[in-house]
Simulated assay, not measured.
Amino acid sequence: MNINFDLNDLQAFRAVVEKEGFRRAADSIRITQSALSRRIEKLESALGVKLFERTTRKVSLTNVGRAFLPQVERLLDDLDLALLSIGDGGATRRGTLTIACVPSAAYYFMPHAIRSFHGQFPLIKIRLIDASANEVSAAVASGEADFGLGFTGNLAPEIEFSALLEERYVIACRRDHPLATRDVVTWAQAYEYEHITLDKSSGNRLVLDRALAGLKMGKESVCEARHVTTVLGLIEAGLGIAAVPSIAMPLSPHPILASVALIEPEVVRHMGLLKRRGRTLTPAALELEQRIRALPGTLPRD
């Protein structure tokens, strides 16, 4: 056999498989679609086999292509791992990582992991999909995201959940609010004040509605918002207080915001990493995952 192909051709092959199409694959490795097609044709010609079945609507692997895929993934991942382990090789590594993350973790939590990763691998681009819990699960299940950060709930059957931390809901308020000096507050006491709630499209709203069923609140909410990050902005503006997951709060003292523990009942949720079953993370994705796993025990809290 005349081995007349190179690593770029193998990377093109893997990209088409992962992105399930030539256009998205070309975008992911930053070449034109015609250049990508030439790489695949070159690879098929060198191997003397057809790797893809192509129609106007769909691109799928042939039987030979499916058998070839694990060998390519192992070769490219081994090469990535070797390069990452050589001195400061990370400084010249290129590529894109796509991470799906619920907004409550995307605002204050994830930036610490991304900053650490970027310091070692400055040329690897991070694409962060900040979306609802259901959308995070869907992005991981479809392969759009390498992995996700979300919480337990209605996860797709092809998703594996790996617990990262248990977090409680707290009251977020301004530092000049009467509750800011309290150590704890009950839900009933908190909701005697003007407050903001998350709307029914939020995964957090589902958690809270289940936990607080039957609990009578003193006042109706003054505003509803879809994302926790929006709620925090409304609190900063002085519109009221809100119950939010603790991970959404600043990880060190904040000039405006404060948090107070909520009791009676204490409501918790389980945050974790979401992966598609059977998918092996690339060495770069594993590096970022390790940084995320290390965060809960290392960051200061207000």
Rank of each mutant, 00 (worst) to 15 (best):
Ala213Cys: 09
Ala261Arg: 12
Leu262Tyr: 01
Thr181Lys: 08
Ile263Pro: 01
Pro178Asn: 07
Ser202Ile: 03
His177Cys: 04
Lys219Trp: 08
Asp199Thr: 08
Glu167Ala: 14
Leu262Gly: 01
Val228Met: 07
Ala211Thr: 03
Asp209Leu: 13
Val170Ser: 00
Val268Met: 09
Met217Asp: 01
Leu232Thr: 11
Tyr169Asn: 03
Ala243Ile: 07
Glu192Trp: 02
Leu239Asp: 06
Arg182Asn: 10
Ala211Trp: 02
Lys216His: 12
Gly233Thr: 03
Ala156Pro: 13
Val267His: 04
Met217Tyr: 03
Arg291Gly: 05
Leu165Ser: 13
Ile159Asp: 05
Leu274Cys: 11
Thr186Ala: 05
Thr181Leu: 07
Ala156Trp: 05
Tyr193Cys: 10
Pro253Met: 05
Gly218Phe: 04
Ala243Val: 06
His254Glu: 06
Glu166Phe: 05
Ala285Gly: 13
Glu166Met: 07
Ile241Thr: 09
Tyr191Ala: 01
Lys216Ser: 15
Glu264Asp: 14
Thr186Ser: 13
Ala213Ile: 08
Lys275Thr: 12
Lys275Arg: 15
Arg205Ser: 13
Val267Cys: 12
Leu257Tyr: 01
Leu179Pro: 03
Val228His: 03
Gln189Tyr: 02
Val185Tyr: 00
Ile241Arg: 00
Ala180Ile: 13
Ile256Leu: 14
Val207Ala: 09
Thr229Cys: 14
Leu179Asp: 03
Ala190Val: 08
Tyr191Cys: 07
Thr186Ile: 05
Ser201His: 11
Leu286Cys: 10
Pro283Ile: 00
Leu215Ile: 15
Leu288Glu: 04
Thr197Met: 11
Leu274Lys: 03
Leu281Ala: 10
His177Pro: 05
Leu281Phe: 10
Asp183Pro: 06
Gly214His: 09
Thr280Asn: 06
Gln189Pro: 02
Val267Glu: 06
Val184Asn: 09
Thr282Lys: 10
Ile235Thr: 06
Ala248Lys: 05
Ile256Thr: 14
Phe161Gln: 04
Gly238Ile: 09
Tyr191Gln: 05
Ala180Glu: 07
Leu179Ile: 14
Ala258Phe: 03
Arg279Phe: 11
Lys219Gln: 15
Leu274Met: 15
Leu251Ile: 12
Asp183Leu: 14
Lys219Ala: 12
His177Ser: 08
Gly278Arg: 13
Leu215His: 13
Ala248Tyr: 01
Val244Asp: 00
Cys173Ala: 10
Arg205Asn: 12
Arg269Ser: 14
Met271Ile: 14
Val231Ala: 06
Ala211Lys: 07
Val222Gly: 03
Tyr169Lys: 04
Asp209Gln: 13
Arg277Met: 10
Gly278Thr: 13
Ile241Val: 15
Thr230Cys: 06
Ala172Pro: 04
Pro250Asn: 11
Glu192Gln: 15
Pro178Leu: 08
Leu262Val: 11
Ala188His: 09
Pro250Thr: 11
Ala225Ile: 02
Asn204Gly: 02
Arg205Gln: 13
Ile171Tyr: 01
Ala156Thr: 12
Ala248Asn: 02
Ala213Thr: 11
Ala180Lys: 06
Ile256Pro: 00
Ile171His: 00
Ser202Cys: 09
Leu208Lys: 04
Gln290Lys: 12
Glu236Leu: 02
Val231His: 00
